[in-house]
């Protein structure tokens, strides 16, 4: 009966459903356009290309759920990417360089968290300023793209462990951390802090601490994503992360994570980014000139966001109408 309760609870409250449906619909459509789309090799290479963004989206989702937003995640990846390449070039073994990289991005995430959650800077603008700083650091570390990675890294990334593609483990890392976090009382506290910080504070929730965790987690996910990305492309590029922030945030919103905070989960984000990634594949594989591709991707991102907001609006209407029936607020002192 625990299973039945679990299903009832989760299916009723799922916000990821649209994204899941979108993704599987598109996958089916793709199958008709492109035979071999459901083959293992296609799916594996699809995951390979998208793992980094999926990790970023998980991080972005958690920050948004906690009531903030972090648009410096992309530039964080740029910094981490060039840093990793430089470390490897300087002779550091990848078994040390990789953890150092993840540590660095987590530190960057926590720095963002301090600025926003503790010092109460505006989430949007502070991370926007931070993204400039990180982009600048990336350019300083490696002004032009280049470098290479250890063969083992690329081999691991493209291979599999126990029959499961290695990329899945990259995605699992942040996933497991978040699910573990949700198993502690902090889980609901983070959701409360994200939805209504004042009421959460009244309930003795440590709002800044929960937000700080969210930003740190986003940094951690960015680190994992960077390792994935670096192993995939095999080199460093200071501008590589530039577009990734927007992709991650849009994927999160498409995945049902509400921008007002406190709603949604990273599963939605994962499917949101799978959906966006699939669209990119379809666009790339069609014969559109390369000059048109960024435009088309941008338009699709826009349409996806519009669609997600329309869906949220309709759900918001329903909730508001039932809230009206439920009763108003108390007055007086």
């Amino acid at each position: 009966m625990a299973l039945a309760r679990f299903l009832a609870k989760n299916v009723k409250r799922t916000t990821a459903l649209p994204a899941v449906l979108l993704f599987f619909t598109l996958l089916t459509v793709n199958f008709f356009i492109m035979p071999g789309a459901l083959s293992r090799s296609f799916l594996v290479s699809f995951l390979n290309t998208n793992t980094a963004v999926i990790c970023l989206t998980m991080g972005a989702s958690v920050v948004i759920i906690a009531g903030g937003i972090d648009i410096s995640l992309g530039p964080m990846v740029s910094v981490a990417n060039v840093m990793l390449i430089k470390l490897l070039a300087a002779g550091t073994h990848y078994s040390a360089a990789i953890p150092l990289t993840v540590l660095a991005t987590t530190a960057m995430g926590l720095l963002n968290g301090v600025l926003v959650a503790v010092l109460r800077g505006s989430s949007l603008l502070t991370t926007f300023a931070a993204s400039t700083v990180y982009s600048g650091i990336a350019l300083l570390v490696m002004p032009v793209p280049g470098g290479s990675v250890a063969r083992e890294m690329t081999a691991f990334y493209n291979g599999s462990l126990l029959g499961i593609p290695a990329t899945v483990f990259f995605i699992l890392a942040p996933y497991v951390v978040w699910k573990a976090f949700k198993r502690t009382p902090h889980g609901i506290r983070l959701y409360a802090a994200g939805n209504n910080p004042a009421k959460a504070y009244s309930s003795a929730v440590n709002v800044p601490a929960e937000k700080l965790f969210a930003f740190g987690f986003a940094g951690f996910s960015a680190g994992i994503g960077t390792v994935a990305l670096t192993s995939s492309i095999g080199s460093g590029d200071p501008l590589i992360g530039a577009q990734m922030s927007m992709m991650a945030i849009s994927a999160a919103v498409i995945g049902g994570v509400s921008l007002s905070g406190g709603y949604g989960d990273i599963t939605g984000g994962i499917f949101g980014s799978l959906f966006l990634g699939l669209i990119t594949v379809i666009v790339l594989s069609s014969n559109i000139s390369s000059f048109l591709q960024q435009f088309v991707s941008g338009v699709i991102l826009l349409l996806g966001m519009i669609g997600a907001m329309l869906f949220t609006m309709r759900r918001g209407e329903k909730a508001r109408r039932s809230a009206d029936r439920g009763g108003g607020t108390a007055h007086g002192e």
Partner: peptide, 23 residues
């Protein structure tokens, strides 16, 4: 260099934001 310029501009913006516009 260009990179350092971005860093300086970004840090300056953060400082301005924290003095003027806190939640």
């Amino acid at each position: 260099p260009e990179g350092a310029r971005y860093v300086i501009q970004g840090c300056l913006l953060v400082v301005i934001l924290l003095t003027n516009n806190r939640s």
